[in-house]
Design a binder for these strands. Structure first.
Length: 403
RNA sequence: CGGGGUAUAGUGUAACGGUAGCACGAGUCCUUUGGGAGGAUUUAGUCUCGGUUCAAAUCCGAGUACCCCGACCA
């Protein structure tokens, strides 16, 4: 894409009311725009990033047999009365025509469970795994930290349906592995730890995926040896010991909850009477699990993890483009050709064809954070070279280039 | 929801109670191109409502918004 055509312009300074790193850099770089606290517009560069995160998540969900659906964001309140979750403070409620009460979706058990009931009739229909990537609305008392805690945000939620608890547990382990693949591809593998957390009403534990970050609002107790952590909220229950090796040498770290998985068992299948007939025509209750990853929170987390004083440093698979091509001086013809050649080779290229000073282009390149920068200039062309520099390295390399 | 802070142009920042200014940005034209270039020209602002005053960006009151801390967080 030609940068002169790009809708956005970068900002030299971040708006003074932004404190968090991800919000500052995303706004300065023109990835997002804030409409109101916790609510953001995604601009062309930001959409490219979010689509990349979604692509990774989709691929890994499909890999374990997930089928993608899109559930409504607007729910009738009745469904929430069924599970007695119609009084939660976190819900946005609204009134429609004829005073009908609606809820904006903040999670989707109340929608997916009755939906599943329309098709799950026999043991032959199980197991089944449904996921979606959808906007969630949560009436947070305090939105904060840019994309890390919003009132409207994008989330992937997966719901699994099983004939028994054993099958649920098997799939639960499969999802754990899939999640680690996702974090690996997002560049966060070394910073993300499976964490024991409160299981709420239905089980002793749930599992969270916590990504280490100074800007995180959670605290985890990490066992360096076993690579597993315990959320602060339940550390006393666990008597300050690692759940695996039982050692007490735990490190306290701040972290961001980037994913969580829950064994729901029959918490939702019961109120919605989600059942099936087994081999002997016995009516049995369905067991469920749910598994979430905050797509937009993940995007914010990646920036918190990968940036320097100049800007964002996108991991390869997340970056809005592969190559940032920057012409300096009178090299328009050569730059245009290189731009087309690079694209022909299958690269996503952002070509800075703007009439701007060299300094400005280079500064913008650092801010936007595309992994590979290629500079084409009179100087380098004389040496029959173009100059390449990786965003995460200091070293400038020269690559042979015959025009 | 409790506490604290802030509010002037798209962004950043000035202005004793007395003419709202500067820089960057943006638009047009020309010159420029290795770390936010130069010239010419144009553009745009005191959060809202009320009060005090001859006079309010400035003082007072209420509201609103945003940020931070805490609480909350399937």
């Amino acid at each position: 894409m030609k940068q002169s055509q790009l809708f956005i312009k970068t900002l030299k300074e971040a708006p003074k009311d932004e404190q968090s790193i991800n919000a500052k850099l995303l706004i300065r770089g023109g990835f997002v725009d804030k409409l109101t606290a916790g609510v953001y517009s995604y601009l062309p560069l930001g959409v490219r990033v979010i689509r990349n995160v979604e692509r990774i998540v989709r691929e890994e969900m499909n890999q374990i047999g997930g089928q993608e659906v899109v559930l409504p964001a607007l729910h009738p309140e009745e469904n929430w009365r069924m599970t007695k979750r119609d009084k939660e403070e976190i819900m946005f409620k609204l009134k429609g025509a004829n005073k009908k009460e609606y809820v904006l979706g903040w999670t989707h058990e109340e929608v997916v469970t009755p939906l599943a009931g329309k098709f799950i009739k026999s043991y032959k229909d199980l197991p089944v795994y449904l996921y979606q990537i959808q906007t969630k609305f949560r009436n947070e008392l305090r939105a904060k930290s840019g994309l890390l805690r919003g009132r409207e945000f994008s989330m992937k939620d997966l719901y699994s349906f099983h004939a028994d608890e054993k099958d649920l547990n098997l799939f639960y382990e499969k999802v754990k592995k899939a999640y680690f693949k996702i974090f690996k591809r997002c560049g966060l593998k070394d910073k993300t730890f499976l964490t024991l957390a409160d299981g709420g009403a239905f089980s002793k534990y749930s599992h969270e995926f916590q990504t280490l970050s100074e800007s995180g609002e959670d605290e985890i107790y990490l066992c360096d040896k076993c690579k597993i952590a315990i959320n602060k909220e339940i550390i006393k229950q666990e008597k300050n010991r690692c759940p695996i090796c039982r050692k007490k040498k735990l490190v306290i770290e701040k972290s961001i909850e980037t994913g969580n998985i829950f064994s729901l068992k029959t918490r939702f299948s019961e109120p919605f009477n989600l059942s099936f007939k087994d081999e002997k025509e016995q009516e049995k209750i369905v067991f469920m699990g749910c598994y979430g990853i905050g797509i937009s929170r993940l995007m914010g987390t990646i920036i918190e993890a990968y940036h320097d004083e100049r800007g964002i440093i996108w991991p390869q698979e997340i970056a809005p483009f592969d190559i940032h091509l920057i012409p300096i001086g009178r090299v328009k013809k050569e730059a245009e050709k290189l731009y087309h050649d690079l694209q022909k080779e299958g690269n996503q290229v952002l070509y800075d064809d703007r009439d701007k000073s060299a300094g400005e282009k280079l500064t913008d390149a650092d801010l936007i954070g595309i992994p590979l920068r290629m500079v084409i200039s009179e100087k380098s062309l004389q040496k029959r070279c173009i100059e390449t520099k990786k965003r995460d390295e200091k070293k400038v390399k020269f690559k042979k280039y015959n025009r």
